[in-house]
């Protein structure tokens, strides 16, 4: 889409673009280029020089069992977070959609966790579920449930999934609710006249009509679980115990800053860039389709 009218000025547009282009060049293209460049190099053990190794870094990480394990961890983590956050939000939105009285209050009370930082969410959930002091952990023990996220990998995974999903429910809720309110009332009334109950109406009319929203949220939640949950993992488990909660983004951090393995970390960054680009393209194709929906 283009404007019919425009201003004529030779220097002004460049001047206006300059701040953003400068910031983008220095903090985006330069580092992204560096990552690409470093992913083809391997520094010597003293970090004094580096030699070109071609695709060796990629070959190395893609055959590294630890990296493949972290891929699997990320896949499990992402599917769980996405599923839990979307299922809970869908349920709450379906309920809130029915309500007229007090809907504003309900919405406010569901929306606020969006504003909590992932790292803070991690601290809050740790306080409830830490095996030695957490209140919930205490009652779980009373009920005879063994719970030790500090030692047990599966418990730790559950812990980070809960804290991450909790924060994302608000976001999904808002979009699901907006989607439901856009469903034509006449359709629902027609179904009610034909004798379909609430349950039936939801699954045969509302849910199918929500599919563009659901698909959009699916992509957003995957991106969230991949990239924005670093704070949760770092505050709660530090990727452990063992490597049970080391996701791909956490591993880039751990290898690059803690392990100082720059070649491998750069190669991992490049792989992640490819993952994000694919997700972004999927998201944009979806937006094109939504227009015609």
């Amino acid at each position: 889409m283009e404007k019919r009218v425009s201003f004529n000025n030779r220097a002004l547009p460049y001047l206006l673009l300059f701040p953003q282009l400068a910031v983008t060049a220095v903090f985006f293209f330069w580092p992204a280029g560096q990552a690409l460049y470093q992913s083809f190099l391997r520094p010597d053990p003293f970090g004094l020089s580096a030699r070109f190794v071609g695709l060796e870094n990629f070959r190395y990480i893609l055959t590294d069992p630890l990296y493949l394990q972290s891929f699997a961890t990320t896949a499990i983590f992402t599917s769980l977070v996405t599923f839990v956050a979307m299922a809970v939000a869908l349920f709450l939105a379906a309920m809130a959609d029915q309500v007229i009285k007090g809907s504003g209050v309900y919405r406010t009370l569901i929306v606020w966790p969006y504003a909590v930082a992932p790292a803070v969410a991690g601290v809050m959930w740790m306080f409830m579920l830490q095996p030695s002091i957490g209140v919930i952990a205490f009652y779980m023990k009373q009920l005879g449930i063994t719970w030790n996220p500090l030692l047990d990998g599966q418990d730790a995974m559950l812990l980070v999934v809960l804290a991450s999903a909790w924060k994302q429910v608000s976001y999904n809720f808002l979009f699901f609710l907006a989607g439901m309110q856009a469903v034509p009332r006449s359709l629902i009334e027609a179904a009610a006249i034909d004798g379909a109950g609430r349950w039936r109406r939801f699954w045969t009319i509302i849910f199918p009509l929500l599919s563009p929203t659901t698909f959009f949220l699916l992509v957003i939640n995957i991106v969230y679980a991949f990239f924005e949950t670093f704070g949760v993992i770092h505050t709660m488990t530090s990727g452990g115990p063992g490597r049970a909660t080391t996701t791909l983004v956490y591993k880039v951090y751990a290898d690059g800053f803690v392990g100082q393995d720059l070649g491998s970390s750069a190669a991992q960054s490049v792989i992640l860039m490819v993952v994000v680009s694919v997700l972004t393209v999927i998201q944009f194709r979806y937006i094109e389709r939504r227009v015609h929906y």
């Binding site: 220095v26 580092p31 560096q34 990552a35 990239f227 924005e228 670093f230 983004v249 690059g256 970390s265």
Partner: peptide, 24 residues
């Protein structure tokens, strides 16, 4: 210029964290 800016949409800072740190 539009595409140069638009491309940044694709990469959150978490992904290019190590090189961005070096630049800074």
């Amino acid at each position: 210029a539009f595409w140069a800016i638009f491309m940044t949409l694709m990469l959150p800072v978490e992904v290019r964290i190590v090189p961005t740190f070096e630049v800074v």
